[in-house]
Write a protein that binds this DNA or RNA. Structure first.
Length: 170
DNA sequence: GTAACGATCCTC
DNA sequence: AGGATCGTTACA
């Protein structure tokens, strides 16, 4: 049960996103309680070319965390009500992130952040040093399947068809 | 300023 | 199938 380090996150998101499956998202609450959530579904968003990735719009106040070195969180609001939890990957000025879509007990990216009480105050949070959220490796290397990403049809071909959504098998 | 649009979820 | 709900972005 060791906290994942910089070398894990500072690689291409197409490697990191599937490898996050089976890892444990750890949340330490204000009262000191700690709860763990097995990650079961992720999606990769990769660079300025990927028209489904917010970074395709360039470096803006909203997207700037994605340009940080891997290991920090990128939080943003969609549809005026749901916060999305993204883990930034790759190196400085290489905008990539893995969206955490579900855990073993909570399905859906919006429901997950509501359950874990994650919002804008976690934008830029550093998973390498944070005392309230981090990810641990238990040595589990699960099988997984790949699928097109959800809710990004507007990105058009070929991006809407990239099999960059990863689901833990069983 | 103004307007259009979501990396979703819930209820009909 | 449709509504909720608001920050971000682009454009005038």
């Amino acid at each position: 049960m060791t906290r994942l380090d910089a070398t894990f996150y500072r690689r291409d998101v197409l490697e990191v996103a599937p490898e996050l499956l089976g890892k444990k998202l750890v949340r330490k609450w204000p009262d000191g309680q700690i709860t763990e959530y097995l990650i079961t579904e992720t999606e990769a968003y990769r660079g300025t070319e990927d028209l489904a990735c917010h970074a395709s719009k360039g470096l803006t106040p909203r997207t700037r965390m994605m340009y940080e070195p891997g290991g920090v969180l990128y939080m943003y609001l969609v549809y005026g009500m749901h916060w999305m939890l993204n883990i930034v990957t790759a190196h400085d000025m290489e905008p990539q992130a893995a969206l955490i879509r579900a855990t073993e007990t909570v399905s859906g990216p919006g429901r997950l952040t509501r359950h874990l009480a994650l919002d804008r105050t976690f934008n830029g949070e550093d998973l390498l040093t944070s005392a309230r959220i981090w990810v641990t490796d238990n040595g589990f290397r699960p099988e997984y399947t790949s699928h097109p990403r959800i809710g990004i049809d507007y990105a058009g071909d070929p991006w809407k068809n990239k099999p960059w959504r990863y689901i833990l098998s069983l």
